[in-house]
């Protein structure tokens, strides 16, 4: 389990990094926290010819909070999110989700941009990005562009990112103080990739009915996705037991889960409903 040979570069500017990524016929890879890429290289599942280490790029490690929302630099590590008290109010859903990312040591190294670029279907950050309609800012040879999270994840470990593009920022829309949210996931061991998880929020109108419901799921199917039928159940309804039960059933019906060595498809379908149910209960509670 030794890595295949590769070249290594550690540029100090974004433009240089983009140039390097463009230089190797699509065989160059950006290295951020390395928590997914390096094991894949050790298994020789990934064999990039050039690693472009992003660690010396300035300005990508910040968490910016404004009236527009939360901007997470691509090199923000999970630890930074966990330790940032401002996020308790600015984005409680993000904070709740990131607590579930892998293990302590991995959270010290793993990055927001790395997770988004890796696009594991069960990963929390892509799930939050999709559930919250995040925008993903990238920089490439052709310049900067913004990709909507809904358009970014194309399949398991597959994204809309071009080989020469680097994620620079993930932009989460503003979070009203009264918004309700919940995050639930279940893995066989704490820290493992979830067999299914739900990230959701909604706002309450004056009559106590939900609006603007966003329900995202991870670990079921080949990418994180929003479940519109579940959102339809929630919007315009009071979040009571009957609504929650309806929403859970709608969630189970809306997914096309896969089977793997850890869980059957039928189990995942049921678990998705349970996760949505419990996330709604914690949101309402």
């Amino acid at each position: 389990m030794k890595m295949p040979p590769f070249e290594y570069a550690c540029p100090t500017s974004l433009s240089e990094a983009v140039k390097l990524l463009a230089s190797h016929d699509g065989e160059a890879k950006a290295l951020a926290g390395g928590q997914s890429l390096l094991p894949m290289m050790a298994f020789r599942v990934a064999q990039p010819t050039l690693l472009v280490d992003l660690r010396k790029l300035s300005g990508l490690g910040e968490i910016k909070i404004s009236a527009d929302g939360v901007r997470l630099g691509a090199l923000v590590r999970w630890r930074d999110i966990e330790d940032d008290d401002r996020l308790d109010a600015a984005h409680p859903l993000l904070k709740a989700a990131i607590a579930h990312v892998a293990h302590y040591q991995i959270r010290n190294r793993g990055t927001v941009g790395g997770s988004i670029a890796h696009a594991d279907p069960a990963a929390e950050m892509p799930g939050i990005a999709v559930a919250c309609d995040a925008e993903i800012a990238v920089m490439g040879k052709a310049g900067a562009r913004i990709i909507k999270a809904a358009d970014f994840f194309l399949g398991a470990l597959t994204t809309a990112l071009q080989p020469d593009e680097i994620i620079t920022e993930v932009r989460l829309p503003a979070w009203p103080a009264s918004r309700r949210s919940g995050f639930q996931e279940f893995a066989r061991r704490r820290g493992d990739f979830a067999m299914a998880g739900a990230a959701l929020f909604y706002d309450l109108d004056k009559s106590g009915k939900a609006s603007n419901a966003h329900v995202g799921v991870i670990g079921v199917g080949d990418r994180p996705r929003r479940l519109k039928p579940v959102e339809a159940v929630l919007n315009g309804s009071a979040i009571d037991e009957a609504t929650i039960a309806k929403a859970a059933a709608a969630a189970s019906a809306a997914v096309e889960p896969q089977e793997d060595i850890h869980a059957s498809a039928a189990y995942r379908r049921s678990l998705t409903g349970t996760m949505v149910e419990r996330a709604l209960k914690s949101a309402a509670g």
Partner: peptide
């Protein structure tokens, strides 16, 4: 006694 197995038994 995996989650899937126990869940199947309950079902």
């Amino acid at each position: 006694l995996s989650p899937t197995y126990i869940w199947e038994l309950v079902q």
